[in-house]
């Protein structure tokens, strides 16, 4: 079903095979098979507790942080299973960046927030590091607002700016895949609009996967949408198709607001 909706030119960046996650024996995600394409924005929607955040966090192994989380199945990037025991977590997370629901800038200057990753991972310093930081801040549409006070503490920024700082911080590490866990849910409408525009822009160069509660947002920013319920994929396809001609009754009920 997924393959039928895939434009032939799109290359798969990350793929899950029978991916199941359970917390303390309680299943949260059941045998999910999904593909995410390069230079594409995929939105994950569904009612609270449907497993969309779990799916997202399984893609960069942030579930490792939860003591009782158990993962079965595979997640393939470049044909390699990230749950392989030989997988280097640092390398994985360099490839797969993540932005959280609540902006979490580090308690340090704006520059340091963005510079920390490239400095620790690639040993960059001096002029090169400054260029990488500027580039990341530009891509995150924050440069013009902060270029004159890069020494200011990241926490002194507004909520929307903080979230874009977190996006810049992620981009500075040069990932290919960007995971965003409800990146706008803690932000006001204007900041939300800015982040949405940013996601559309980033979707041209990166594989972007966004979890969102906001259906209009999913419709506005994504090329593909996955609808999950009770830990299972109900429907997965091109966003326009899924919103205009849903194949399943549950999908239709959910997007028409008759459920959840």
């Amino acid at each position: 079903m997924i393959a039928a909706m895939t434009p032939t030119k799109a290359k798969t960046a990350i793929q899950t095979i029978d991916l199941s996650v359970s917390y303390n024996g309680k299943p949260a995600l059941k045998a999910v098979n999904a593909e995410f394409y390069e230079n594409t924005v995929t939105a994950l929607i569904g009612p609270s507790g449907c497993g969309k955040s779990t799916l997202l966090r399984a893609l960069n192994r942030m579930n490792d942080r939860i003591p009782d989380a158990q993962v079965q199945g595979k997640v393939l990037i470049d044909g390699k299973d990230i749950y392989d025991r030989r997988m280097n977590l640092t390398r994985l997370r360099r490839e797969v960046g993540m932005v959280f629901q609540k902006p979490n800038p580090f308690p340090m200057s704006i520059f340091e927030n963005v510079a920390l990753g490239p400095r620790l991972h690639y040993g960059l310093k001096g002029r090169v590091l400054e260029e990488v930081v500027e580039d990341a801040l530009r891509k995150a549409a924050l440069w013009d607002e902060v270029k004159d006070d890069l020494k200011k503490n990241g926490l002194a920024l507004s909520g929307g700016q903080q979230q874009r700082l977190c996006i810049a911080r992620m981009l500075a590490v040069q990932p290919r895949i960007l995971l965003m866990d409800e990146p706008c849910s803690a932000l006001d409408p204007i900041s939300t609009q800015k982040i949405e525009e940013l996601i559309v822009e980033l979707g041209k160069q990166y594989t972007v996967i966004v979890v969102t509660h906001n259906l209009q947002q999913a419709a506005r920013i994504s090329h593909y949408t996955g609808f999950l319920m009770y830990g299972e994929v109900v429907e997965w396809g091109e966003t326009t198709q899924l919103f205009e001609r849903p194949q399943k009754q549950e999908t239709e009920d959910y997007i028409r607001g008759r459920f959840g």
């Binding site: 960046g97 959280f100 800038p105 308690p107 920390l116 990753g117 620790l120 992620m170």
Partner: peptide, 23 residues
Amino acid sequence: ALIDGGLALGLSRWQTLWRIALP
């Protein structure tokens, strides 16, 4: 959330501790 941020950036546990939690 700060620790998560560090780990998601690919920092090791020690780097997260020294660079983020300690400051």
